[in-house]
Design a protein around this nucleic acid. Structure first.
Length: 283
DNA sequence: CGTTACCTGAAA
DNA sequence: TTTCAGGTAACG
């Protein structure tokens, strides 16, 4: 569920609340622990965290990086339905609450996750937990030449390449569809077939849809909430995502839905066309 | 490369 | 009853 803008919103909400706080206690639902913690047992996990203080929270792609005062990092991924919210000790459990960290100021960091796909990993080097991630798209490291190299020679549909975290970090299904709409590119277009002008539009569109998503505190279509448990607003401003059968705001054509790489994909068949490289001129 | 599995629930 | 779901790892 949460993509870069949603994860960044949670990070910004929680960072000032946890910075400097000490972890007093750790609770993990035993039934959820194997998927959440992987090979680490609950006792070992608790022993490693209790008494530690948070320094701050970073983010890489869709991962949250909770920096601890012993140099280790708690790397969290919300996957589809994970939530991290800040609550008073006395507050009732969240729906589908699976774990919590009790802090020294009367509050808890509550983890809930209906589908249990989310992960927590305690590591010395966050790079060990995030895999091979491409550049941060809302950052100077995301350059047009680098983006063009990522597309070059690839026969996969551009939609799939945008979702490939090794190419660009943090884009998910909502913002992939929205960026392709903004760049006026059909999602089925082979990535390698995208010419310089289209690549430039898409590069700019990726940045702008993500920045708008952050400005609107993320998109809450179903499960996503921010660090205070509140919904985001970006779902009210999407152009194509889950607008199947509704009119395109630009041309009035019906938005269509197809499946690409196993993911629902929404686009305007009139506004979004397959860009053609400039055909080679005769002689 | 595309498909399947992980898990639970809501909606069609 | 069947399909679908803001993600990703592991398949073939």
């Amino acid at each position: 569920m949460p993509e870069l803008p949603e994860v960044e919103t949670v990070r910004r909400d929680l960072a000032p609340l946890v910075a400097g706080r000490r972890i007093e206690a750790v609770e993990v639902d035993p039934a959820s622990a194997p998927l959440l913690l992987g090979n680490t047992g609950i006792d070992a996990f608790r022993a490693a965290l209790v008494g530690r203080r948070f320094l701050g929270i970073g983010r890489r792609g869709k991962y949250l990086l909770f920096e601890l005062d012993d140099g280790n990092t708690l790397v969290a991924h919300l996957r589809m339905t994970g939530r991290l919210v800040w609550r008073r000790h006395a507050a009732p459990p969240e729906p589908y609450q699976r774990a919590m960290l009790e802090l020294d100021d009367g509050h808890d960091l509550r983890w809930s996750d209906l589908r249990k796909f989310g992960t927590w990993r305690l590591v010395a080097d966050p790079n060990d937990a995030v895999g091979k991630l491409g550049p941060e798209p809302v950052d100077d490291g995301f350059t047009l030449p680098g983006f063009r190299t990522a597309l070059k020679g690839r026969s996969a549909p551009i939609k799939s390449v945008l979702l490939d975290q090794r190419r660009v970090a943090g884009i998910g299904n909502i913002y992939a569809d929205e960026a392709l709409y903004e760049a006026r590119i059909a999602p089925s277009t082979a990535a390698g077939q995208i010419g310089p002008a289209s690549a430039k539009r898409l590069h700019a569109a990726v940045r702008s849809v993500l920045e708008r998503g952050i400005a609107n505190r993320g998109a809450s279509f179903k499960d996503y909430v921010d660090g205070a448990g509140q919904q985001g607003h970006q779902q009210m401003f999407v152009q194509v995502f889950r607008r199947t059968g509704k009119p395109c705001y630009a041309c009035g054509s019906m938005i269509e839905r197809v499946v690409i790489g196993g993911r629902s994909t929404h686009f305007c068949p009139r506004c979004q066309r397959t860009p053609r490289r400039r055909p080679a001129r005769a002689r």
